[in-house]
Design a protein around this nucleic acid. Structure first.
Lengths: 333, 333
DNA sequence: TTGTACGCGTTATCAC
DNA sequence: GTGATAACGCGTACAA
């Protein structure tokens, strides 16, 4: 492992000069630049990010904190974030918090010690105060909107309310009248918004029945369990809107097992747009979030906070729209 | 952000002393230790990992490089690795290589610059020489055995051959005779071993037919596509063994769509044991790898290479066994 | 255009 | 027991 000093020595110049060519800063004659580059190549020199971090307080590293890596939604986000970040030369540190406040806190502590340049929070149970308590202020943060941070935090938002409206209107349009909803945890903003969209739409249509609303936890198991319960407790349900796709997968499973025909007896639509909805049979209709775009925008916003020097593509609106994707579970003939 | 110097000043001691209490090294009087600890708390001091990395050449960071984060097998591995590592105070850097040699190289370069203490390779297309070319020697590496590194590299292996034998014997035992195989990419050792297990077992049973072997790429789409082809080109296939679960999910989908009864007409079994096999209906039988254990052992071995000081649980055998999990797709009545 | 020298926050080696 | 002080590898004013 050669250092900048080795390069300088070999090239017969000072470390400052070498540093300049590395960082493309200040004036350097073409000649010395060439010579130095040659020496760097010969020594296989590559600057130490650690030393750099210490000296410059900048590590070209961001962190992405997600609540559950086994929910495919988050790997898909992770992929987008990492892609985008790495196209700017930024490394992404991925932290899986397991829906666990303690782990979240632990991560925050680690990230601070590591001088990450910024953090993307995909979801968390922390208050803004707790975060500040650990991080202090000044750390760039972007929150993907499943989180419930304060308004001061920059975030990438999706119009969940509108998405839910789309879902329910779609179910209505194919003839459903008793439409059940398996919501996400009520304390999550996103989940609550989807719930509102559902409720409002059904109210307007004169079909709302509070008995048909069940609270879930976004897991597949829960989707199965609740659907079972739902079928037992209610007659004539002809449509189900689950607050995420994973629960839709679970619901579908229970429906099939119970001999319920999908979509003839019960139509089903999820939310998120993860690719797993296409892996089951029949394929599940869903309200797709622009997952890749969300990750991408999050990185853009974060970089924006970190520094203005990067020439970023124009900022697109912060509120992204969802899209109805109709598949077999809502296609009646 | 207070530094060790601030603490030293406040406590009226030298930085060396503070460093000693931080690292529990050398002698320190109980009194000063208490005082220093109090000061650290008061200043909310927390040592900089970056500075530490520079000074000590050790970052308490390992990296996990995976080929495809959207294949659920790897998030499950990632979770195990991260859990285990973090229980030893080690942070995990997760890199998604997208089955892309260039990205792999890029990651290696980054990791080296960052002084990671070691790397776990879940799969890759690099030769041992390429790796050495970037890393030089001396970097601890553990390879999860989908990779095809040389024998010098420490690795966590699963008995894929035996697993495939289990799968095929199981299919035979429920009455299948014309058993097809959708393999993984032939250049991957694991895939090749599973293929051998399949071939040998069927040969012994006198049922081997080379026409029933198709090469896949571990993706669900491929599972669908190949199954379609397989049904078209062959009569009387009554069992399918796919080299991983994702392809089994795809196969199941095609079977259902084609009106083939599973398992009555065609039985189906996968390999890996990812939880997605339980998300579809009917649930898919599989040869489960001890995924969590694999991740855990990988970390153990890596830490072992990094240093002997950590008191690790006794090393368990490197070759882990797979287990048949019988579910609906191979349960005939 | 290039070089000198100091600082970044810790660890570790010697002295005291 | 404790305290200076030299690394660690790099960035950067400030000089030259």
């Amino acid at each position: 492992m050669s250092t900048i000093r080795d390069v300088a020595k070999l090239a017969g110049v000072s470390v400052a000069t070498v540093s300049r060519v590395i960082n493309q800063k200040g004036y350097i004659s073409k000649d010395t630049e060439k010579k130095i580059k040659a020496c760097m190549a010969k020594l296989q020199y590559s600057p130490s990010s650690v030393a750099r971090g210490l000296a410059g307080k900048k590590t070209d590293t961001i962190a992405l904190l997600i609540p559950d890596i086994t929910n495919p939604f988050f790997p898909e986000i992770a992929r987008a974030v990492e892609d985008t970040a790495s196209s700017y030369g930024i490394t992404t540190l991925l932290g899986n918090c397991d829906e666990n406040g303690v782990k979240e806190l632990r991560y925050l502590d680690i990230l601070k010690k590591r001088y990450v340049d910024g953090i993307i929070f995909a979801e968390h149970g922390l208050t803004w105060n707790e975060i500040h308590g650990i991080l202090g202020s000044g750390m760039p943060i972007v929150s993907l909107d499943r989180a419930a941070l304060s308004e001061e935090v920059s975030s990438v938002r999706v119009n969940h309310y509108q998405g839910a409206v789309l879902a329910v209107e779609h179910l209505l349009s194919i003839g459903c009248r008793r439409i059940a909803h398996i919501s996400g945890p009520n304390h999550l903003i996103t989940s609550a918004n989807r719930n509102r969209g559902y409720t409002d739409t059904l109210r307007n249509a004169g079909c709302f029945d509070p008995d048909l609303v069940y609270e879930g936890d976004f897991s597949m198991e829960c989707g199965m369990r609740v659907t079972e319960q739902l079928l037992k407790e209610n007659e004539g349900v002809d449509g189900i809107f689950t607050s995420n796709d994973l629960m839709a997968v679970g619901a579908l499973k229970t429906l099939i097992r119970s001999g319920v025909k999908v979509p003839e007896d019960v139509a089903l639509i999820g939310f998120d747009g993860i690719s797993m909805t296409q892996m089951v049979e029949p394929e599940i209709s869903t309200i797709a979030q622009p997952i890749y775009e969300i990750g991408k925008q999050a990185v853009f916003q974060l970089i924006h906070q970190i520094e203005d020097r990067h020439e970023l593509p124009e900022m697109t609106p912060r509120v992204l729209e969802t899209k109805l994707i109709q598949r077999a579970t809502t296609t009646r003939f």
